[in-house]
């Protein structure tokens, strides 16, 4: 079963990090539905936010692969949960790692 995940990567401001991150997904045929990359106020850091659809197993594997990239500082990912009457909209994102 696939879910929609938001994956947040905090990395060093290194020009080749973006392609390295993209390759982690492409190699596993997990398509990036949305990508935002931005320099932070601390200019030595870069933030990447990606939205993908994949399985829980692959989300974890991808997070581990991202974590081992040399210029990656941290990886967090969240699964999108459907909004239901007993699950309010503000809890739409569930923390995974």
């Amino acid at each position: 079963m696939t879910n929609t995940y938001t994956i947040h990567v905090l990395g060093n401001n290194e020009p080749n990090l973006l392609p390295r991150i993209a390759l982690v997904f492409n190699r596993r045929r997990v398509f990036i539905k949305n990508l935002n990359a931005s320099e932070l106020s601390d200019k030595s850091q870069y933030s990447y936010t990606l939205t993908v659809e994949t399985t829980p197993v692959w989300a974890e594997r991808i997070a581990k692969q991202l974590e081992k990239q040399i210029d990656v500082q941290s990886v967090n990912y969240f699964v999108h949960m459907p909004v239901t009457s007993d699950r309010p909209a503000k809890a739409e994102l569930a923390y995974c790692a």
Partner: peptide, 12 residues
């Protein structure tokens, strides 16, 4: 750099 990225631990 582009070609070698998938097959290196790190490159620059």
């Amino acid at each position: 750099i582009g070609i070698s990225t998938p097959v290196t631990k790190w490159n620059c």
